[in-house]
């Protein structure tokens, strides 16, 4: 099941390499041995690849998931509640029956679910549905992430700080609060007095007050390309493109790391090399904490 995602256009290898087409020991006919369902607010290109397309009314994902959670436990739901989602009760019960009959069910959910009305409440509801389905058969759920290696950044922040994003180090140790310490919030409030941006183009996607602040402060961009952000930055260091001319590691959406093997040489340094050299220069400067000073968590 895909929910609120459009892999045909956003993750073009997902059907062929990962979720729908591959043949295997227990699914020797590949696609023919699988049932694919798409739930979305409009019939995207991905709908053509699905056996069943369910067009949910915009903003009604949470309600639909909750109805499905009730139905799998044979709870009664009112006709009106179902009708509001844009899906009929027959469609719901048919879906539930298929889910329960599946030998291994997997729900991939995209930003059409996690970034629309209800946001993380929608994701939590869907994850709960998948967890509860395990009373009947094996069921799992996995988010479909956005840009390139966002999973890799997540994974590393987690092992170094315990948190995936929205982290501040302003007390000398990691603290987490999305909505307060997320980059966009820090910029909109004007809390940052410098910005260092690698492999991202917030100048193209963030709200105007955040972009205005980036233009006000010393912004340094490491990017192979000229971008909206590099145009407003005080410094743009051109780097070799990762995976094309720079080696490294990228984490797949399922957190499996893949080595990047460059096919080309680049006259530009890699991001890693630039960061390393900046770090070497910073080490030569006096440490931010006075010599001999010791901070404890209680003091800060």
């Amino acid at each position: 099941m895909y929910w609120g995602g459009n892999p045909a256009e956003c993750h073009p290898r997902h059907f062929t390499k990962y979720a729908l087409m591959p043949k295997s020991k227990f699914l020797p006919r590949g696609r023919k041995d699988r049932t694919a369902v798409l739930v979305d607010i409009r019939p995207t290109k991905s709908a053509k690849a699905a056996d069943i397309f369910l067009q949910v009314r915009p903003g009604k994902d949470f309600e639909l998931i909750t109805i499905l959670r009730a139905l799998i436990k044979d709870q009664k739901v009112s006709e009106e509640a179902v009708a509001e989602t844009g899906i009929t009760l027959e469609q719901c019960t048919d879906l539930i029956e298929r889910m329960k009959k599946a030998k291994f069910g997997c729900v991939f959910f995209g930003m059409g679910l996690s970034m629309t009305r209800g946001k993380h409440m929608n994701s939590a509801a869907l994850l709960t549905l998948a967890a509860e389905m395990n009373a009947f058969t094996k069921f799992v759920a996995m988010p479909m992430r956005g840009h390139g290696n966002v999973t890799g950044a997540d994974v590393i922040m987690r092992w170094q700080t315990g948190y995936p994003f929205g982290i501040t180090f302003n007390r000398g140790y990691p603290r987490y609060n999305p909505g307060e310490f997320s980059t966009v919030d820090v910029l909109v409030r004007g809390d940052a007095d410098a910005a260092f941006i690698i492999g991202a183009d917030p100048g193209a996607t963030m709200p105007q007050p955040a972009i205005d602040h980036l233009a006000r402060i010393p912004t340094i961009v490491l990017d192979p390309h000229v971008t909206h952000t590099s145009n407003l930055a005080k410094v743009h260091i051109t780097t070799a493109p990762a995976g094309i001319a720079a080696p490294g590691t990228a984490y797949r959406m399922d957190e499996i790391p893949l080595p990047l093997k460059p096919a080309l040489k680049s006259p530009y340094p890699t991001d890693e090399e630039v960061v390393r050299r900046i770090k070497q220069a910073i080490v030569k400067k006096p440490f931010w904490m006075p010599e001999g000073a010791q901070m404890t968590a209680a003091q800060v």
């Binding site: 170094q160 700080t161 315990g162 180090f169 007390r171 000398g172 140790y173 990691p174 440490f287 904490m289 010791q294 901070m295 404890t296 968590a297 800060v300």
Partner: peptide
């Protein structure tokens, strides 16, 4: 327990 960064030590979290 929070681990505060120092010149010899990276920051982190216990628990």
């Amino acid at each position: 327990q929070a681990f505060i960064r120092s010149q010899s030590r990276r920051s982190g979290i216990g628990g």
